[in-house]
Amino acid sequence: MNPPSTPQSYLDQGNAASVGAGSGQGRAVESEDEALVRRMAAGDDQALGVLYDRWHPVVHGVVSRMLRQADDVEDVVEETFWQAWRQASRFDRARGAVQTWLLTIARSRALDRVRALRRRREEPLEGDDGQDVVQQVAEGDPGLDAEASERRRLVVAALSGLPAEQREALELGYFGGLSQSEIAERTGQPLGTVKTRMRLALQKLRSQLQVLGSEGEGSG
């Protein structure tokens, strides 16, 4: 797959502490997380330990939001970092920050488990119940360093800027693991409406993150 042609300044800022604000896609300095992933790719298991120490609260937070059973959460957290270890050589810094890569893995593994559980138990939904994540930003960010905390603030701010019904579609799909048809069934909205809301939501989130990221660079 080709690298994205769209501006990615907000992604580059994800490692601003070591990269430097506004360094853009052409940055040459390797972030601390990127160095860890490079060492992992070379077979350094201690680097995996450090990456785990840095990011396990965030991964645990995402996985806990999608799965209810503690055993499932523990398994998925472990499998997330295990997949990161196995695929470290495939990490491409041009496509995004390490944290985005890691959290994408976490969400994907959790989604697999959510769907497998639903099929096995024939339950309508495991995981997210539509609870609004935005309110959680004020609770503090235990375990997050300053740059990750700032990045999280931007994402929550961008989500807060979305209309409630668009945010709901986004969260039911992302954290709940529901397909568009399932969201339509859950919310009682026509499928076409759900599709439109989801499309607009992600587009707005993308542009909002770009704007907020640019403002952050300008003020920083």
Partner: peptide, 19 residues
């Protein structure tokens, strides 16, 4: 690819939870 990056950032909206 760009949209997947944006979607990936959504995970940050979930509050970190120390184990």
């Amino acid at each position: 690819a760009a949209l997947e990056n944006t979607a990936g950032e959504l995970a940050l909206a979930a509050a970190p939870i120390p184990m």
